[in-house]
Design a protein around this nucleic acid. Structure first.
Length: 214
DNA sequence: GCGAAGATTGGCT
DNA sequence: GCCAATCTTCGCC
């Protein structure tokens, strides 16, 4: 039975004030919600990575504040969005107190099938009017990578610096994922900080991205 | 002012 | 497995 309406409860600001790696772990299982024209789209977070400026050379803010990474220095619980490889937008959740920089990269989502029109809207966003692609995309492919999920959720630089207490983009509460179901590895696609085990994903979840630890 | 590199993806060999 | 696509930012000349 698919409910016609789902009420989402936003994670409180205090959730994001936990240490970065605690937030990265605790975000697993939570629901990313995006309000756009035509309704809400949502997905369950199944893969994250932590980045901490103070000790982590892979973090964009390791060498201090710049124009690009400015929102990472803002209050915990805001969005940090940047362009990757000239092609993809990456969505991060800012952590650490204002003035210090840290963030959690959202790497993969499991689309909610119980939300009306959700898969249809995600497919449309991913395919971007390409009818052939729209038909080909499986549910797994809709948001199983950091660049794919921003495309599916219509997320770009316009949302950089937005508070996650806003209605257009927020994260909703959901039952905690059991510690035995969380897998910890090193991060994907980086050249610095390769040894740090700061990637988290839900064990055996088919929506986790295909990126291998570097 | 300019060049190199990047927290990726998908298609082809 | 390898590689191109594409563009913004940063760091250095």
């Amino acid at each position: 039975m698919k409910p016609r309406l789902i009420t989402f409860k936003k994670l409180s600001p205090s959730f994001y004030r936990q240490p970065t790696l605690d937030v990265a772990k605790a975000l697993l299982g939570k629901i990313l919600v995006r309000s756009i024209e035509g309704g809400q789209i949502a997905g369950r977070i199944v893969e994250t990575e932590g980045y901490i400026a103070a000790t982590d050379a892979a973090c964009h803010a390791y060498r201090g504040e710049t124009a690009r990474n400015r929102s990472m220095f803002g209050p915990a619980g805001t969005a940090y969005i940047y362009r990757s490889y000239g092609i993809h937008w990456m969505l991060n959740i800012v952590t650490e107190p204002e003035g210090e920089a840290g963030a959690v990269l959202l790497r993969a989502l499991e689309p909610l099938e119980t939300l009306e029109q959700n898969l249809h809207t995600l497919r449309r966003n991913r395919a971007n009017a390409n009818r052939a692609l729209e038909k080909k995309l499986t549910v797994v492919q809709l948001a199983n990578g950091p660049g794919n999920l921003t495309k599916a959720f219509a997320i770009d630089r316009r949302l950089d610096g937005v508070s996650l207490q806003s209605d257009e983009l927020f994260i909703a509460t959901a039952p905690e994922v059991s510690a035995t179901d969380v897998v910890v590895t090193t991060r994907v696609g980086i050249t610095q900080g390769r040894a740090l085990p700061w990637r988290y994903f839900i064990k055996a979840n088919p929506f986790v991205s295909k990126g291998r630890p570097s």
